[in-house]
Nucleic acid binder design. Structure first.
Lengths: 133, 133
DNA sequence: ACATATACGACTTTTTTAGTCGTATATAAT
DNA sequence: ATTATATACGACTAAAAAAGTCGTATATGT
């Protein structure tokens, strides 16, 4: 419960790694996969998703790879999570409203307050703060 | 990702319900299960766990059931989660230290800061605040 | 042409969560 | 005493989510 997925974990590791390289170097998925022992295919997909959302810029072909497209302090954790996992909701009813309980539920409001608090915490957390400035 | 388990959800619903009854009434699992359409056996186990940890007091036999043993404002969300799910850790390495990455990991420290922030948020949230005073 | 990279859909495996079953025990009512 | 109704609890199964793999297409530098 309340675990970060490996998808998100790998994304953060990769972003941090790319950020640490010289600005114009394109970093391949293979390189990161090697350094951090992340399954290549899996990491590749994640990076593809990030470049599809303009966080990374991809160059194809030999000597290809990725570099940052956006500065990491321009983006917060909520945005990254949304890209990789969809909207944050600690209970399903925090996102949509398919719930057997309907209006009977006696904890919905307070749970949503908790949910909001977490989201607002993530809103205020830039990726550069996570990846260490 | 970042979902509350049904176990926790059911526990909160039950606590809230019991709290709403007259103080000395013992409430059976069956009653709660009926009102909120929670699978009886599952709910029963949860309530048993809560009474094992002195949050509820159980009376066995016919006309048996549960009542609150502790006031809900005496307990925070962290404590309840610990009972039902074990220690909170958004990554496995936040709890124990089996990780292939060992010291290579470049996001461990910041992730642990996030983890701590969440825990401290839950620390400061009493169950009565969640169940609506 | 070849080696190396991204792109991407389909699939399988693993892990976690949710729920069920069976049985034992306690107790109130008849 | 017997019955009905409750908690107690270990073992099991089912469902859902997450993690990882496979295959194939396409781009590009040498």
């Amino acid at each position: 419960m309340f675990k970060i997925t490996r998808k998100l974990e790998y994304a953060l590791i990769a972003l941090r790694y790319i950020q640490g390289q010289s600005e114009d170097k394109v970093v391949s998925a293979k390189e990161i996969s090697g350094v951090y022992r992340i399954p290549l295919q899996l990491l590749a997909k994640i990076l593809q998703e990030l470049s599809k959302h303009d966080i990374l810029e991809a160059t194809q072909g030999a000597h290809g790879g990725y570099k940052l497209k956006k500065s990491l302090d321009q983006m917060n954790l909520t945005a990254l999570i949304k890209i990789l996992e969809g909207p944050i909701g600690i209970m399903d009813c925090s996102i949509d409203t398919k719930c057997v309980q309907l209006d009977i539920c006696n904890i919905r409001k307070p749970i949503n307050r908790v949910n909001d608090a977490i989201i607002s915490m993530f809103d205020n957390l830039t990726l550069s703060e996570i990846t260490g400035i």
